[in-house]
Nucleic acid binder design. Structure first.
Length: 573
DNA sequence: GCCGTTTTCGGCCCGACTGTTTTCAGTCG
């Protein structure tokens, strides 16, 4: 069983949790967490790197010691240190720490005072009223613990970006209209266009914070007020989405927006850089001693750090600060650069709008071309087209193209990759298409080698242009299939075909890390919406967000090309 | 345990809010 970066990252996070409860050096704890983050952010599989003889300590936040520990995990499948620490600190305490309001110190107190080693122990102790009698705890904390345990709140719940948008847009309007609020923006992972958001961070500027907070907690959708102060408040909406509002004076808005946009790692790196320049940086601004430097906007803050403004999508401490320093920030692809959409469905399969309606909607969006990619015949549940159906559709497209101005409808299909890597239509039919998007829809549980081989075999078919949603993940619903993306990228480059960034907010597949990997390898990606209705074409912005997070520029995206260039690129030797 | 605009040792981000205290530790972002 191959070891993945995320497995190693999880081991390091577990170790950090336990070390923290054991009251270890906090900087040592942080080192493990930083290493875990670094591994998750690295598109390159460290097990493969080791096999190739690479020095892992060249990765950020991985030193000699952690490189050795990674090697141990890759070679043996476990980490001796974790097992040793688990002797001292029961692993179940990590679940206790995951509860809101319980940190390492309190978990340790509960362990020492009441012998608690698991969530079950904790629940019993809370029910018996024993927790309230422990020093530092009280009735209120006990009730909160019981509430959290019984509601199973240990797992962090994240919202898909599109779902968060639905709640965020009206709330932002509401906050902007509040008395005492001059302006407001949504910061946090929402502004960074991460595929999911844990909560909404809203930053507002105003002269009367208390008044703004008062209006905020009176919002109709608020189910529970977690905290409220003079300048910040946390609430839970009826949907379960947590919202943090922070209100600062207008002159601090830029600093606060930067601070709450994060990511945490990016903010820390910026503050570190500020320290190096004798400056202190917080959500109110930049300070030299007690003297406030002008930093009313994000641009001024970066300027004071000696850097150009860095786009929020890049703020993950994945090399953007170094790139900014070197004047080598990527020129990011924008929605306006997109000249067509190469993945969409019609009523012929499982779409809700007709061929003509999809084409008109594309024209309204200023596209030069679209590809109609209805499902192939084995997708019976999705109304997959028989050979005859598809041939009829090709005639329809010819007829439609004769009536269209400025838009070319490409003949295409989202063809199933069958279990053995062959395609769902015969080659002579595929040869009649302008583009073949090949996707896996069934058999997502193959092991990594088999799945990777299967997709590469599909790419061996010279008619294939794009691999659709390469990992098959559905956010919050289905994990990514086991595929070796590095091998897929390499195979695509060798064969002259492409991978997709599926822009549907349910998928966002490839994700940001994979986009970065492809970009670094020099493989262009297609951003396709997989629209099943006219409105789905607007999902393009989500795909753009992921692509930007993966540092993609216009040249790294297939469908920024004009039609002739696109046709050339899709031609395989 | 990592790392270097503090540079190979000695640092390591910073402030708001809550609950339990009676001046602050713990947690969170």
């Amino acid at each position: 069983m191959p070891v993945h970066n995320r497995d190693i990252a999880q081991t390091f996070d577990q170790l950090a949790d336990l070390l923290e409860i054991a009251d270890a050096n906090p900087f040592r704890v942080r080192a493990y967490r930083n290493a875990a983050r670094s591994l998750r952010a690295s598109g390159r599989n460290v097990a493969d790197m080791l096999a190739e003889g690479c020095d892992l300590s060249e990765l950020p936040d991985i030193g000699e010691d952690l490189a050795a520990k990674i090697t141990e995990i890759v070679e043996t499948g476990h980490l001796t240190l974790l097992e040793e620490v688990a002797q001292e600190v029961p692993r179940g305490l990590a679940d206790v720490v995951a509860l809101p309001g319980i940190g390492p110190k309190r978990a340790r107190s509960l362990h020492e005072a009441l012998g608690i080693t698991s969530l079950d122990d904790l629940q019993r102790a809370a029910e018996d009223g024993r927790i309230a009698r422990v020093k530092g705890f009280g009735a209120k904390t006990q009730r909160r613990i019981l509430d959290a345990v019984t509601r199973g709140k240990t797992r962090e719940r994240r919202f898909r970006l599109d779902v968060a948008e639905d709640y965020a847009a009206p709330l932002l309007e509401y906050i902007r209209d509040l008395e005492g609020v001059e302006k407001a923006e949504i910061a946090g992972s929402y502004r960074r266009r991460k595929d999911t958001v844990g909560d909404l961070d809203i930053v507002a500027a105003g002269s009367d914070g208390a008044k703004g907070i008062e209006g905020f907690i009176a919002y109709d959708e608020v189910a529970r007020v977690v905290s409220r102060g003079e300048t910040r408040s946390t609430v839970i909406l009826r949907s379960g989405l947590q919202v943090d509002l922070r209100i600062v004076a207008p002159e601090s808005f830029g600093a606060a927006l930067h601070y709450f946009t994060g990511s945490k790692a990016h903010s820390i790196a910026c503050r570190h850089r500020a320290n190096g320049k004798g400056l202190k940086m917080n959500e109110y601004g930049l300070f030299r001693g007690d003297k406030r430097q002008t930093a009313n906007s994000e641009t001024e803050i970066y300027d004071a750090l000696g850097l150009p403004w860095i786009a929020p999508v890049l703020r993950e401490d994945r090399g953007e600060i170094e790139a900014a320093d070197a004047g080598a920030l990527p020129d990011l692809v924008r929605l306006e650069d997109i000249r067509g959409d190469l993945h969409m469905h019609t009523t012929a399969s499982d779409g809700r709008n007709s061929l003509r309606e999809m084409a008109q909607a594309a024209q309204e969006r200023g596209y030069e071309y679209i590809a109609i990619t209805d499902h192939s015949r084995s997708q019976t549940v999705a109304g997959g087209l028989s050979v005859e159906d598809l041939e009829a559709q090709l005639d329809d497209i010819d007829a439609l193209n004769n009536t269209l101005e400025g838009l070319c409808v490409l003949k295409s299909s989202e063809v199933d990759i069958l279990k053995d890597g062959t395609l769902d239509y015969p080659d002579d039919l595929l040869a009649k298409l302008d583009l073949v998007v090949a996707s896996v829809h069934a058999g997502l549980d193959l092991d990594e080698d088999a799945q990777t081989e299967r997709i590469i075999r599909a790419m061996d078919n010279p008619h294939v242009g794009i691999i659709g949603h390469p990992t098959g993940r559905l956010i919050n619903a289905r994990p990514a299939a086991a595929v070796d993306l590095e091998r897929l990228i390499e195979a695509a480059l060798e064969r002259g075909c492409f991978l997709e960034v599926n822009a549907s907010p349910q998928r966002l597949d490839l994700d940001d890390v994979a986009c970065r990997l492809a970009r670094d390898a020099g493989l262009a990606l297609s951003i396709g919406t997989d629209a099943h209705a006219v409105s789905g074409l607007d999902d393009m912005r989500f795909g753009i967000g992921q692509a930007q997070r993966g540092w993609l520029g216009p040249d790294d995206v297939l469908n920024t090309r004009g039609l002739n260039d696109l046709r050339d690129l899709l031609k395989r030797a």
